[in-house]
Design a protein around this nucleic acid. Structure first.
Lengths: 196, 196
DNA sequence: TTGTGTGAATCCCTTCACAGCG
DNA sequence: CGCTGTGAAGGGATTCACACAA
């Protein structure tokens, strides 16, 4: 099978659903079904043109543009995220960092100065923030979320271990590390004792 | 509705599936169905005894004991995780930290000294490590995972943005931040253009 | 009467299988 | 012939609805 790098080079080449499936730990039927939801741009007998597929996927995933994101919370998790290289390379650009700690406000991260939460709404409005990454303690998360939504953001990546209450038209992705660890514990525990 | 704190105090009290549902963003039927998989310990006309329910859940989730975890990767994400207070309070105990950077090996984090990856297998064996948190770059993740599995760990919480290949009896929970951001972008993008 | 436990109905996602296009 | 696109089948999870226990 060709490597990812090979595919990158072969702009005019094609990939089969079979080949895509083996990359993504899924099945060929699954790949075809998924892609068919967004139109039919494969060639029968050939597969999918790599170049076209890539472009379509970029559109479908919404990564064919730069998303402007505000990081709320400049603690440990916030700083790890800010340095996380994969975000920038995938088209997510931090345009603001906010923290409630007065000792942090004014510090410079990269090209940004950490701002006070007081400024949240104006930052979102002025900078055209679309996505918010919430990396604050649980007790502060709901308020920040509501204010961000009120200011017009379109989605939230939530690291706080609570279920945010936001209008249904604002998607929230929860990154609940404790729940994921507990899911692991559950799977491991269940494995041994399969009879109730 | 009662607050979580109220419930904590009311050891002899009961909760209905209705009440649990509204807390967990789910439905009453769902709660009952889920719980029924593990036996029937609710009282008809009353609900679930809070004390008993808590105990059962602890058993079911496997959090009625301390899990010994090794942190592989002491970079930004690793350090954020190491300090993440929720893990310790939920019964996860770091017993080893490993990093391949010679400048970090020997540094002391909390009560632990950062170890070289060379020692991975012996650490896992000697310390009875059950869970591994993988917070290393993508290119190192597969090797570390295989070695950890070979040394007998039971589950992996994976922060590397790749699909790990491990035996099917070793559960892996992926924390793929890029994918979660892309899921958000996808949802937002789809919202506007619902007709293909 | 209240609220569980659970079959039955429903929904959604995955897999199968194959007609038909290139 | 090879491989897509898609109807049909299958399966797991969610929802409904109600008998019945406390």
């Amino acid at each position: 099978m060709r490597s990812l790098e090979d595919l990158e080079r072969e702009g005019g080449e094609t990939v089969s659903s079979e080949e895509l499936a083996s990359r993504g730990h899924t099945t060929a039927a699954q790949v075809r079904k998924d892609l068919s939801h967004f139109g039919s741009f494969g060639k029968r007998g050939l597969g999918y043109r790599v170049e076209e597929l890539r472009e379509r996927l970029r559109q479908i995933l919404g990564v064919d543009r730069v998303w402007r994101v505000a990081l709320i919370g400049a603690g440990r998790i916030g700083s790890a995220l800010f340095e996380y290289p994969a975000f920038e390379s995938r088209g997510y650009e931090y345009v603001a960092v906010v923290d409630s700690d007065p000792a942090k406000v004014g510090n410079v991260w990269g090209e940004l100065r950490i701002r006070s939460p007081d400024e949240l709404e104006s930052l979102i409005g002025d900078l055209g923030v679309e996505l918010v990454i919430l990396a604050v303690p649980a007790h502060a998360a709901q308020e920040m979320a509501e204010r961000a939504v009120g200011a017009g953001i379109k989605g939230i990546l939530n690291f706080a271990p609570i279920r945010l209450k936001v209008p249904p038209d604002v998607p929230v992705e929860d990154v609940n590390l404790v729940m994921q660890l507990e899911a692991l514990s559950f799977l491991i525990t269940q494995r041994g004792s399969s009879s109730p």
